[in-house]
């Protein structure tokens, strides 16, 4: 470990960490919010399930580096604009979460939803008061996967010059220094653990009704 490099770059590292958090959390949250109606739609209209899940999944196929590079040409942003990263990750999150939300809604016992319908819950009341709360474990389980992979994907943006923890990798490579790279990896993993635990905690807090032994 090169402590000299480390101590002289502490504030930069803190900036990068903050930027990384920001670039991860915002698109993840945005993607979740947008995936909810899409997933509901895919669940509600079974004929559209394949189309919605399949076509959103196709975005997932596009490698992130290619996505970052192509976006400016499509939406007219500058190549260095962090907005490209936010949009690309939002799209990835939607692609992952649409299927999760649809499958989460499908995992609810049909008689539960039917009971709500027959009791006179309107469609929106059903979604907010019954389906969503019951699907929380599945949806947040998917969100844990999404947030952890998003943390890794964000680092790619260093190649096109968007500053975040990935910049430590390119910096280390060009300087031939291992310290920045290891620091970056450790911080990425730390963020992943923290965000993962936060979602897990939220999932438990939102589902006091689940049998304890399976509430993992």
């Amino acid at each position: 470990m090169n402590t000299v490099w480390l101590s002289s770059n502490l504030s930069w590292i803190a900036e990068l960490t903050f930027a990384h958090l920001w670039l991860t959390v915002v698109p993840t949250a945005l993607g979740l919010v947008l995936a909810l109606p899409l997933g509901w739609w895919a669940h509600q209209v079974p004929r559209l399930y394949g189309f919605i899940v399949g076509s959103s999944g196709l975005f997932y196929t596009v490698p992130s580096l290619a996505f970052f590079v192509l976006l400016p040409g499509i939406i007219g942003t500058r190549i260095l604009d962090p907005l490209n990263v936010v949009i690309a990750l939002t799209v990835y999150t939607i692609a992952l979460m649409v299927r999760v939300v649809a499958d989460g809604l499908a995992s609810i016992p049909p008689e539960t939803v039917q009971a709500a319908e027959a009791m006179g819950y309107r469609a929106f009341q059903r979604f907010v008061l019954v389906q969503l709360p019951v699907a929380v474990p599945v949806i947040l389980g998917g969100l844990r996967v999404a947030v952890v992979s998003n943390i890794s994907i964000v680092t790619m943006a260093a190649i096109i010059g968007v500053q975040q923890l990935g910049s430590l990798f390119t910096q280390g490579y060009s300087l031939g220094l291992m310290t920045p790279i290891v620091t970056g990896i450790v911080l990425c993993l730390a963020i992943a653990v923290v965000l993962d635990l936060l979602i897990l905690w939220a999932s438990r807090a939102l589902t006091p009704w689940r049998p304890k032994e399976v509430a993992a």
Binding site: P109, E111, Q114, G120, R122, V134, W209
Partner: peptide, 22 residues
């Protein structure tokens, strides 16, 4: 439809209880 359903109680196989409510 909704008004109608609220006038009619409904009991189904497996009860269809809301798992997230006491």
């Amino acid at each position: 439809k909704v008004e109608l359903r609220r006038k009619i109680g409904y009991v189904i196989q497996n009860a269809g209880l809301f798992p997230h409510r006491t």
